[in-house]
């Protein structure tokens, strides 16, 4: 049993107890929220179908191997597993696309392998940068976003490098 095994059960208990103490109808509010969660899932389903299909084709054709091979000298120089390179490339562009690749990495290499762990940390510590920038500035009249893109891409890159380092640090190889 690890410390992290306690996080979820304790958090769920805390939320429910706090809700009951404050007089919240915890069951009905749960159902309301769960409905929203389902709706998000339904919303991303078409994108999942589109992206899983094109990623599956890309992989089956051998093109992914060529791409990974081309970038591998660079990635191994910074200690980043080459198997996670396609994931790192797609992550800033598309959340559901990255999810698809992540799933592929897990089924191929296993979630508890070094590669699977780096992919997990990479997924958790970076965001869909371009999408976020587009919708956030979309509500304003701003056309010049200044240092925004540079900083956001730096953050992604730092996240990629850090994911390999932190996995080694906390979980070993």
């Amino acid at each position: 049993m690890r410390l992290t095994d306690f996080i979820i059960p304790l958090m769920i208990s805390f939320i429910l107890i706090h809700g009951l103490v404050k007089g919240v109808d915890v069951f009905n509010e749960f159902l309301d929220g769960a409905k929203d969660g389902l709706m998000i899932g339904v919303k991303i389903l078409p994108a999942l179908v589109a992206l899983m299909t094109c990623m599956g084709m890309f992989k089956a054709s051998g093109a992914l191997d060529v791409l990974t091979y081309a970038i591998s000298p660079l990635s191994s120089a910074i200690g980043f597993p080459p198997e996670c390179v396609p994931l790192a490339l797609l992550r800033p562009l598309s959340g559901s696309g990255a999810l698809v690749l992540f799933e592929g990495v897990l089924s191929e290499h296993g979630p508890d392998s070094f590669i699977g762990r780096v992919a997990s940390v990479l997924m958790g510590s970076t965001e869909t940068t371009f999408y976020t920038i587009a919708i956030y500035f979309g509500v304003t009249k701003v056309t010049r976003t200044r240092q925004c893109l540079a900083a956001a891409i730096t953050a992604d890159f730092a996240g990629f490098i850090a994911s390999a380092i932190t996995v080694r640090l906390f979980l070993g190889i």
């Binding site: 690890r2 940390v121 730092a158 906390f170």
Partner: peptide, 22 residues
């Protein structure tokens, strides 16, 4: 889903990597 023995073991690593990136 893919049979991890400890699905949440990556939390500390994710937190540190996120903080570094932010």
């Amino acid at each position: 889903k893919h049979g991890s023995a400890s699905p949440f073991e990556i939390i500390p690593a994710i937190l540190l990597a996120s903080i570094f990136s932010v």
